[in-house]
């Protein structure tokens, strides 16, 4: 299987990354560029493009477009994440290639079809951003390419499903805004069922408590104490007195007195380190506790190392870096083959 990908919104590249992991030959077409990438851009390029064949073509001109069409004609699947206006220019409905997949910010039709949409814009318009952050401050975007990569996952699975289908589609369309809306939690449902708007509530989830982020001695921990775990939390922190406290005597009471409960827990956990919270909370009291690990801690985490999660990539000038490997793997997990990164102009 040969997959061709081009465009500039990261979603096609994430889909291509999945096809590369699946074992397809993936050809990435970049637009020529003279600018030097900063650290963030280079990191993104390493993460998304390692393992692919690369070629730089200016497909905005006739000659380049002809070359792109020839490459597409040799491909099983062609994935593009351009704006619809560029897809119009390259005559997308008649573009060569087995299965054509477009990933656009707002879809191929509708009043916003030609609007520009980056991750933070799509998170906001899709209903994610409004509920994240401090209620007394601006909402927060997630510092990641969520809409892009999730749309890439939809593109990958749709194209692969179509490829193995008895009746493959010629064209698949993925909307990134609709991707975000598809992955909503209880925002639109809260409105359609009860005409209530879910608002930002800091780190709380709003339906049961204590479910929030708490300071500890060396960082933060997250507790997800649904009612089943309440007694074990009390046992862990040695505060049997809270079992007798009317303010916390039921699920409803704990929710109603969340501020008071948080004051107590924030004070209690200052005596613990993140590691102690995990050891005591998870291993002894079987509680859903998570520690706010730094990237360095995650990179050196014993659990992930034991699972052979990281994949080594040799980056010229930098040596080996560890990159997330496949997000799903056959059991038992084994070491993943190292890869070689090639920059955009080495294709």
């Amino acid at each position: 299987m040969r997959v061709l990908e081009f465009g500039d919104n990261k979603a096609a590249s994430y889909a291509g990354r999945l096809f590369q992991q699946y074992g397809a030959e993936v050809v990435r077409v970049d637009l020529p560029s003279n600018s030097l990438p900063n650290d963030s851009d280079l990191s993104l390029d390493i993460f998304l493009q390692t393992g692919k064949r690369r070629v730089a073509i200016d497909y905005r001109g006739d000659q380049g477009l002809a070359l792109l069409r020839r490459l597409a004609g040799e491909s099983t699947i062609v994935i593009a994440d351009c704006l619809p206006s560029l897809l119009d220019e390259i005559d997308w409905p008649h573009f060569p290639g087995g299965i054509r997949v477009s990933i656009t910010p707002f879809g191929l039709d509708g009043p916003y079809r030609d609007w520009q949409g980056f991750g933070p814009i799509l998170q906001a318009m899709g209903g994610y951003t409004y509920i994240i952050g401090n209620p007394n401050k601006a909402p927060l975007s997630m510092p990641m390419h969520y809409a892009e990569y999730q749309a890439g996952q939809f593109a990958y699975m749709s194209a692969l499903a179509s490829f193995v289908s008895e009746t493959p589609s010629a064209e698949i369309e993925v909307s990134m805004l609709e991707t975000v809306m598809t992955l909503s939690q209880w925002t639109t449902i809260y409105w359609t069922m009860q005409q209530k708007i879910r608002c930002r509530d800091g780190n709380r989830m709003g339906k049961v408590h204590p479910v929030s982020l708490y300071r500890c001695r060396d960082g933060f921990i997250y507790l997800t104490i649904v009612p089943t775990f309440w007694r074990n939390l009390i046992a862990m922190i040695g505060r049997d007195d809270l079992l007798e406290d009317e303010r916390f005597s039921s699920t409803t009471a704990r929710l109603a007195n969340a501020d008071a409960l948080d004051d107590i827990l924030n004070e209690v956990f200052l005596d613990y380190t993140m590691a102690e919270c995990l050891e005591l909370g998870q291993r002894k009291y079987r509680l859903p506790v998570g520690a706010a690990m730094t990237l360095d801690q995650v990179l050196n985490d014993e659990h992930l190392r034991a699972r052979h999660y990281w994949q080594d990539v040799n980056v010229p000038g930098h040596g080996n870096v560890r990159m997330p490997g496949a997000a799903f793997r056959s059991v038992p997990a084994t070491a993943q083959s190292p890869l070689e990164y090639q920059g955009a102009d080495n294709g």
Binding site: S40, L295, R307, V313, V321
Partner: peptide, 19 residues
């Protein structure tokens, strides 16, 4: 795993931290 799925969507951040 839930954990690994989300780390995957943060992949470039991990590369940048090492670079």
């Amino acid at each position: 795993p839930l954990q690994e799925g989300t780390i995957n969507l943060l992949g470039e951040k991990y590369v940048e931290a090492q670079l």
